[in-house]
Write a protein that binds this DNA or RNA. Structure first.
Lengths: 133, 133
DNA sequence: CAGGATCCGCTAGGATACTG
DNA sequence: CAGTATCCTAGCGGATCCTG
């Protein structure tokens, strides 16, 4: 499993990997780009937050989904969880270096989307109402 | 609700826009990062393909999902569809400039994911088998 | 060939209640 | 506070058949 500098063809091959239906990274893609994961990344960008703080930050997420999302992210090494053994419980979350790297791309996409959303909406209107006489 | 030139704080607010549960761009995010949309973008990167070619390129996608994905992408202005009125039908798809812009971010994310997938998998194994004696 | 129409299983995800 | 457990529903998505 040594990692040498990738040749161009290797890079190109790797790039198409996801198009393979059996590609195991598809599930990771699915998780990472899932509705809530991206928003949690957005909320945790260079911050450390507690469970309920994230819940408040990410509008509309349910406890169940937040818990599950956090578990997945931790499992994938994107999220660090620190729990103090006190009562009432105190747990803090923040992105790991790996998670922060990933968040760069997620945030870039989110930013692009937000800034181009008006254009997309306009295209959609044009599309759905094409020159009605 | 009037829109003047954005101040820095407004820009920062815009970045958090997606965290608002009522934010309309959430649905676009959902569509754009949906399972198949990203893979179709991957397949169409600087290419023009026909329906069945895309279907073959994106392993595992069903006709129904491909058709729906293409419709959404066209609706959002990410995809251009050209149909010749011949029999048998001939239809070609390629990304619009807007779609190509978007694909940059999607592909960047996909690339990062593919190259870091081994690491993520390793983290997951470590996580699921923590120092068993 | 490029899809639309239908049927249907599965699961993502919400609401609520409960616990350490 | 930080979750887990349970129940339940909408809609994602697959399989299949059909048509211009």
């Amino acid at each position: 499993m040594e990692k040498k500098s990738a040749t161009l063809s290797e890079v190109m091959a790797a790039r198409g990997e996801l198009l393979n239906p059996d590609c195991p990274s598809r599930e990771v893609l699915k998780r990472m780009t899932s509705r809530w994961t991206m928003l949690v990344m957005l909320a945790l960008q260079d911050k450390t937050l507690r469970f309920s703080e994230i819940r408040r930050a990410v509008g509309g997420i349910s406890e169940r989904m937040l818990a599950q999302t956090l578990r997945y992210m931790e499992e994938d090494g994107l999220l660090a969880r620190k729990a103090w053994d006190v009562v009432p419980p105190h747990v803090e979350y923040n992105l790991t270096p790996l998670g922060q790297q990933a968040s760069i791309y997620v945030l870039a996409l989110a930013d692009w989307l937000e800034s181009h959303f008006p254009l997309i909406e306009q295209r959609r209107r044009e599309h759905n109402a094409p020159s009605r006489p």
